[in-house]
Design a binder for these strands. Structure first.
Lengths: 129, 129
DNA sequence: ATAGAAATTAGAATTATTCTTGCACGGTCG
DNA sequence: CGACCGTGCAAGAATAATTCTAATTTCTAT
């Protein structure tokens, strides 16, 4: 376990939460993490899972993703990307931009606007194939 | 008051909620609407405000907008647009696309993907000027 | 080793939203 | 005109995700 990641001091709990997200990149909720992590940390509390996730988010190590008013989900992909929610399967998929596309360029914003964060979420159905 | 809008039968409460949203386009929350509408409907209940907003959303008459995990906000602008949240003032602004831009075209999605809904939210600061 | 700081735990508290129940209203059909 | 019926409304209870609190444990630096 590294001593820290992006300036965030690692603890056993933070490390296991982080590791779990890196290994299972299916955008779990805090509760999903709580359930899954019990194998490794049987005594962890849900509040700690929330604390760890928040710490990781605030240090830019993971991203928090919201769909409508559902539970927040967490994503270790730091590339600029959006999320597609497949209604059929309920799964969530990362969506990247085509090369050379800068989202700010295609929006009408007052010149000088400072954008600190962009969130793109799509809902629909993936092809059946 | 029209008998119905987009197939939704109008009632006094639904009409006043709708009218309020059309007149004050600052993305109020359900509770904001509840407070503001008391001038006209002193006896309306918060549950009814929620019911009316839900009915209007489901009939496509208004849109529900979510920022992080804050209370949902409601928006009568049916044009395709995103939302910019100005950290300085806390206000929310509609953001349109530059002409000719189709968001689906700039994203990497499996061919045949059906998109039913897109949500774009930006956070940042508007220029001081 | 030890003091002080930070993290964890367990459970209570909070907040937005939804649900439940009983009542009121509007329209319809005799 | 009056009983009926479906829908909407009001009030408050219930729910669910998240945050907070207080007490304990673990770290870190000295």
């Amino acid at each position: 376990m590294p001593a820290e990641i992006s300036g965030l001091r690692m603890t056993r709990q933070r490390w296991e939460v982080y590791r779990l997200l890196m290994e299972q990149r299916d955008h779990p909720t805090a509760n999903d993490v709580f359930i899954r992590i019990k194998d490794r940390l049987p005594n962890i509390s849900l509040a700690t899972v929330y604390n760890c996730l928040e710490a990781l988010v605030q240090h830019g190590v993971i991203r928090q993703v919201n769909f409508e008013r559902e539970s927040s989900r967490f994503c270790p992909n730091l590339e600029e990307h959006g999320h597609f929610h497949d209604k059929r399967s309920g799964t969530i998929h990362d969506v990247t931009f085509k090369p050379g596309v800068n989202l700010a360029d295609v929006l009408n914003l007052p010149p000088g606007t400072l954008i600190t964060d962009i969130e793109i979420t799509l809902r629909g159905e993936l092809p059946v194939s």
